[in-house]
Lab assay of single mutants.
Amino acid sequence: IQLFSRPDFLGDHFSFEDDQAALPASFRPQSCRVHGGSWILFDETNFEGDQHILSEGEFPTLTAMGCLASTVLGSLQK
């Protein structure tokens, strides 16, 4: 999965292949690309809070990911 700090796959980005119990504190994903398989994104660290399940594809905004525009993602799980 690739996470981007701005909508439309712009800004800083991080790529992950494994579960992340905590995303970098200063990084707030605003768009993402899922390459193969599914990922669960969580509103809180340690895989807690609301879950957003994404299958392979491109998600140019938080709302395209099924999140509110104000959502701050905290962790993710493959």
Rank of each mutant, 00 (worst) to 15 (best):
L73W: 14
D8W: 11
P29E: 01
G36Q: 11
F27G: 01
V72P: 12
G11V: 03
S70A: 08
S38Y: 08
Q77W: 04
V34T: 08
A21R: 13
S70E: 13
E17A: 11
W39T: 01
F16I: 04
R28M: 11
D12Y: 11
G57A: 02
G37L: 01
S70L: 03
D8K: 08
P24K: 01
H13R: 12
G57L: 00
S55I: 09
T63D: 13
D19S: 12
F14N: 07
F9W: 00
Q77V: 06
F59H: 06
A25K: 12
F47N: 00
L76W: 05
D50P: 12
S70D: 15
E17L: 09
F16D: 01
Q51T: 11
Q51P: 10
G49R: 03
Q30D: 03
S26H: 14
E58D: 12
S31P: 07
Q20C: 15
H35W: 12
S5N: 11
I40T: 08
S70I: 05
H35Y: 13
L23Y: 01
Q30A: 09
P7S: 09
L76P: 00
S15H: 10
V34Y: 00
H13F: 14
A64L: 05
R28I: 14
S31Y: 07
K78Q: 07
A25E: 13
F42S: 05
H13Q: 14
S38C: 12
L3I: 06
A64P: 05
P7R: 09
E56L: 05
F14R: 08
K78Y: 06
P60R: 06
K78N: 06
S5F: 04
P29F: 07
G36Y: 09
S70G: 15
F27M: 03
L62C: 02
F16V: 04
I40V: 13
A21G: 08
H52D: 00
T61C: 10
T63H: 14
N46L: 05
S26I: 07
I1K: 04
S15C: 12
C67Q: 02
W39F: 07
R6Q: 15
F9D: 02
L62Y: 07
D12W: 06
P29Y: 06
H13C: 15
S31R: 03
D50G: 14
P29I: 13
L76R: 01
Q77H: 06
E48D: 09
G74K: 15
A69G: 14
D12R: 11
S26G: 15
D12Q: 13
D18E: 14
R33C: 07
A22H: 12
A64N: 07
S26R: 12
L3K: 00
H35P: 05
D43F: 04
R6N: 08
E56G: 05
S70R: 09
C32H: 09
H35T: 13
Q20L: 08
T71C: 11
T63K: 15
C32M: 03
T45Y: 11
P24R: 06
T71N: 08
V72Q: 15
C67P: 03
L23K: 03
D50L: 09
L62S: 06
Q51R: 13
V34K: 02
T63C: 11
V34N: 00
L23C: 08
H52F: 13
D50A: 15
G57K: 01
G36S: 13
L73H: 06
D12A: 11
Q20P: 03
R6H: 12
F47V: 02
E58N: 12
I40S: 05
K78I: 11
G57E: 01
F42N: 05
L3N: 00
E17I: 15
A21N: 10
E56D: 09
P7K: 10
G57V: 03
A64G: 07
T45E: 15
I1L: 05
R28S: 11
G57N: 07
L73N: 07
N46E: 08
V72R: 14
A22F: 10
A64V: 04
I53V: 14
A22D: 09
D43L: 07
P7V: 06
S5V: 02
S75P: 08
F27R: 01
H13G: 10
L62G: 01
F27A: 00
P24G: 03
T61E: 07
Q2C: 11
T71L: 02
E56I: 10
E58A: 10
H52Y: 15
Q51C: 12
C67N: 03
I40M: 09
F27T: 04
D12P: 08
S26W: 13
T45C: 12
F4K: 01
F47R: 03
Q77C: 12
Q77N: 06
S15M: 14
T71W: 08
G11P: 01
F14I: 15
K78L: 11
L10E: 13
F16M: 01
F27Y: 04
Q30Y: 02
N46C: 07
E44T: 06
R33G: 03
A22Y: 10
A22E: 13
E17C: 12
W39A: 00
S55M: 12
Q77A: 13
D50C: 12
Q51E: 12
F27C: 06
L10C: 13
G11Y: 02
Q30F: 00
L3P: 00
P24W: 02
P29T: 11
S38D: 15
G37E: 06
L73M: 09
H13W: 13
H35S: 12
A25L: 11
F9K: 00
F42E: 03
L41P: 00
D8P: 02
P24M: 07
F9G: 02
D12G: 06
F16C: 07
Q77R: 14
H13K: 12
E48S: 13
F4D: 02
H35Q: 11
V34W: 05
F59V: 01
G66L: 02
R6I: 03
F47T: 00
R6P: 03
E44G: 14
D18Q: 12
A69H: 14
S55P: 10
I40L: 07
R33F: 00
G37A: 08
P60F: 00
C32K: 00
R33E: 04
R28P: 03
G74D: 05
T71K: 10
F9A: 01
G74R: 15
L68M: 14
A21E: 13
G37I: 01
D50T: 14
T61A: 04
F14L: 15
D50Q: 14
G66R: 06
G74M: 14
S70M: 04
E56R: 10
F47G: 03
S26V: 08
Q77G: 07
L73R: 07
S70F: 07
I53F: 13
F4I: 03
R28D: 05
D43H: 12
Q77I: 03
L10H: 12
D43R: 09
